[in-house]
Design a protein around this nucleic acid. Sequence first.
DNA 1: ACGGTATTTCTAGAATTATCGAAATATAAG
DNA 2: CTTATATTTCGATAATTCTAGAAATACCGT
Lengths: 120, 120
Amino acid sequence: MTILALAALAQSTRLDVFRLLVKREPDGLAAGEIAKALAVPQNTMSAHLAVLSRAGLVSAQRISRSIVYRADLSRFQSVMSFLVNDCCDGRPEICAPLIESIAPCCPPKRKRKANARSNV
Amino acid sequence: MTILALAALAQSTRLDVFRLLVKREPDGLAAGEIAKALAVPQNTMSAHLAVLSRAGLVSAQRISRSIVYRADLSRFQSVMSFLVNDCCDGRPEICAPLIESIAPCCPPKRKRKANARSNV
DNA sequence: ACGGTATTTCTAGAATTATCGAAATATAAG
DNA sequence: CTTATATTTCGATAATTCTAGAAATACCGT
């Protein structure tokens, strides 16, 4: 279902929603607050949240009157892995630079690399 | 334009094209052969290739009568980096597992580090 | 110049998506 | 039970995307 996830993220409002929810991990955010934060009508936002949910990128949990959405990082991870593994399929040399460009953002154990923001 | 790249990959034929072209790096493949390989009419494929091209995910070069397409791995890399960095924004602990799940596909060779071609 | 090959552009119909007002559903509080 | 709050579903419209036949463009060999 990679297609579904990519399609869900290929829309600016939904990409914004996902990025917002990632930043709000692990608490999540209620549907209404997401709509308010991004200045989108509630029903429109509801439709977008349904798409993200269908794609498995967010989960929903009712808490009292609110429905709190959370980013599903494991799903996001599996989508990324699928795409990257395609590059590496039998030919690690092709995407080794890709891995190197991604890795610095998360200093695994060692000291943070100075000015790791080399592109974008 | 991350949206453009995601939208380009969020369609099964185009995702197949991109995966095929990644495997054919660095030689590339002519438009007609791509269409034949995926059993899609040439004009339909041409439209899909145009979308991928507009998204910067593939490049085209005329060679005699053929137009040879190649995957643009640096563009792909920057899209991936953008998405992953969103996760890591100020909170590396969130997507450290993501990095770990991706990295193993490319054996981390410490020896060749100096050779890194950061733009490929 | 001509004929053949490779690819794109034009065009159009079908399908899907985005948007949002209005109505409906679910929960909580008084 | 009634009212208020939070969210979704319904319905309708505008816009975009997918698909492919037909025509056009670009290149090559003779």
